[in-house]
Design a protein around this nucleic acid. Structure first.
Length: 302
DNA sequence: AGCCAGGCAGAGA
DNA sequence: TCTCTGCATGGC
């Protein structure tokens, strides 16, 4: 990926320009995969690999500003899924009307490749929480237990997502104080397991899907749905298909004529119907229905 | 004011 | 194997 690098006197960091054809940064960063990105005018600000970034998309140009000299140049490219061949991926979707409609609306949406620990911990916090609330909890957790990160501006400071080892040293009460309720016990237990290397998250991508999923589900507070989020959003398992309440309803409405379907049958369906890029299909469906819901007042929805 | 949120675990049938 | 319930908290 060719990148023009230039000094940026305002931030004493640097700016990079990446090519981002067939890419939708807004959809990608606002589709419930990651919880720390926040809008800053036309741009998005967040932290990847311990480095602060400000991202702005202008057409097929993706401008990335950092506060310090750039980390390895492909860090961001990997994270943002810029190298995914979206045309080939979408060509592998089953040609059904719901997916066509989702692609027509959200084309350019990508799967992120997040840090596995941050992804796992964030989704442990996600159960029966709205996305806005997950964001709040994660921010509090970072403010209190993350490591300082350079950001532009005098006296400003950012925080990394706290490591498993750091959170393993927290008491359940300290975690509860971050407003995460009953999830505190799970987060603490998961942090202790991961800090002890059981499972070793970086070893999971080399395993078969079922095996990696089983390793994640063995963690307290991690079931099929959260495991699939981690498999899909951080470990590169593109067949993983997280089914949350939204996707459940959408699948029943769009593929089963509104009838309620047993969880078992639904998983058999998603496994067989959506093919090798099932995870991408899932994310298109999820983002699509969430955008539609956003435009309709709650009172009009079912 | 009440319903529900990118669920999971344990109990009981 | 399936269904039901408790769990903390806050947006809408």
């Amino acid at each position: 990926m060719p990148a023009a690098v230039s000094a940026n006197p305002r931030t004493s960091g640097v700016s990079t320009v990446l090519r981002a054809a067939d890419y939708d940064l807004d959809a990608t960063l606002d589709s419930g995969q990651a919880f720390r990105w926040r809008r800053a005018g036309e741009a998005w600000e967040g932290i990847v690999g311990g480095h602060w970034f400000r991202l702005r998309q202008v057409g097929t140009r993706l401008e990335a500003e950092t506060a310090t000299p750039l980390p390895a140049s492909d860090t961001l490219t990997q994270y943002l899924g810029l190298n995914d061949d979206l045309t080939a991926i979408i060509a592998r979707f089953p040609p059904d009307p719901p997916l066509r409609s989702a692609v027509a609306t959200c084309r350019g949406l990508r799967l992120l490749r997040q840090d596995p620990w941050e992804c796992l911990a964030s989704f442990v916090l996600s159960s029966t929480k709205q996305i806005v609330q997950i964001r709040q909890i994660v921010e509090t957790l970072c403010d209190r237990y993350g490591e300082p990160v350079c950001v532009p501006g005098p006296g400003a400071i950012g925080r990394s997502f706290p490591s498993a080892a750091r959170l393993a040293r927290c008491t359940e009460l300290e975690l509860r104080d971050c407003r995460m309720g009953f999830r505190a016990r799970y987060l603490r237990a998961v942090a202790m397991r991961v800090a002890a290397g059981d499972p070793c998250l970086t070893a999971l991508p080399g395993m078969p899907l079922e095996e990696a999923r089983a390793a994640l589900v063995s963690l307290p507070g991690v079931g099929r749905k959260i495991a699939d989020c981690v498999l899909l959003f951080s470990l590169g398992f593109r067949r993983a298909f997280p089914v949350d309440v939204w996707v459940m309803r959408a699948l029943q409405d769009l593929y089963f004529g509104g009838r309620t379907i047993a969880q078992r049958r639904l998983l058999e369906f998603t496994d067989s119907h959506f093919g090798p890029e099932a995870g991408y299909a899932q994310q298109y469906l999820f983002h699509h229905i969430r955008m539609e819901a956003g435009r309709v007042p709650r009172s009009v929805r079912r």
